[in-house]
Design a protein around this nucleic acid. Structure first.
Ligand SMILES: [Zn+2]
Length: 262
DNA sequence: TAGTTTGTTCGTGG
DNA sequence: ACCACGAACAAACT
């Protein structure tokens, strides 16, 4: 689930449910996912509230009132947020549970423990520490072009590299390259300026449209590859067979008819 | 059973 | 410095 569009939707969800409410209690149900001192996490949050959130790449930062700290959330592959009151609405793999004075709760759920819950004084210093590249929706064209021109690696590896561009994961990388008829293994520095220009535009369009459609593959236009990202499916643009290959260590779906290396 | 899955990080070669 | 690859982390499903 959690690539840039998903995390942007988590941000909107958090903003519309959980801001400006006193946090009465923090339950840590799994300590492995907490990358700071669990005691200090409870300490910093209880009696304060969530003030304002910021998304950067796949990270969500939430400013805590009264103190100079942000809560940091990363969702790994299976993380999400759930705001609820009744126990029957409780999700299955809650790792951290924030309870509010109004008796509602915000759950950080994450089946696999690949995410992160952390604290930081400064978003900027945190980003620097992680060496994250510019956010995919914020990066300007000349910067994008320089990054692509300076790498010899497969284009898919470059756009997925969070240290170069933050926010794109395995699923949306496939979509972006498919809609540009670019083979994911094409060397980044061999792309023409015109192809890079179109890639840049499509990348931002796809991410924005995905947000608009709630990052729900069933809602996506049928000529996208994401709803057909399975072996045995047919390419919605040419009818060819969708093929699975491995690029950058990840399962990668392409239409060999539409996507070629040039 | 082995391989797969929306992610990140670390190590080993080249 | 860059690049390719694999493993590890973890849990559930084919
Ligand atoms: Zn095709």
């Amino acid at each position: 689930m959690p690539e840039l569009p998903d995390v942007e939707l988590f941000k909107k969800y958090l903003d519309s449910t959980s801001l400006h409410q006193t946090i009465s209690r923090v339950d840590i149900l799994n300590e492995d996912i907490i990358k700071c001192n669990p005691e200090s996490l409870r300490d910093k949050l209880e009696k304060n509230s969530f003030q304002k959130s910021h998304r950067y790449g796949k990270y969500l930062f939430i400013k805590i009132t009264n103190i100079d700290f942000h809560l940091v959330l990363h969702f790994g592959m299976t993380g999400f947020l759930k705001y609820y009151k009744n126990q029957e609405k409780k999700p299955d793999h809650i790792r951290v549970l924030f309870s509010f004075a109004n008796n509602y709760k915000l759950a950080y759920d994450n089946q696999r423990l690949l995410g992160e819950v952390n604290l930081t004084h400064s978003i900027n210093s945190y980003l620097k520490e992680k060496e994250l590249g510019p956010d995919a929706l914020e990066i300007d064209f000349s910067n994008f072009k320089e990054i692509l021109k300076n790498r010899k690696a497969a284009i898919k590896a470059v756009i997925m590299d969070q240290n170069k561009i933050a926010g794109i994961g395995n699923i949306y990388a496939d979509e972006i390259l498919y809609q540009n008829s670019i083979h994911p293994e094409q060397q980044s520095n061999t792309l023409s300026r015109a192809k890079i220009k179109k890639l840049y535009q499509t990348m931002q369009d796809i991410l924005k449209i995905a947000i608009k459609y709630n990052a729900e593959p069933d809602n996506f236009p049928d000529d996208w590859i994401i709803p057909h990202r399975k072996e045995g499916e047919l390419c919605p643009r040419c009818g060819g067979n969708i093929k699975r290959i491995k690029v950058y260590g990840r399962g990668t779906y392409i239409c060999p008819e539409c996507q070629s290396i040039d």
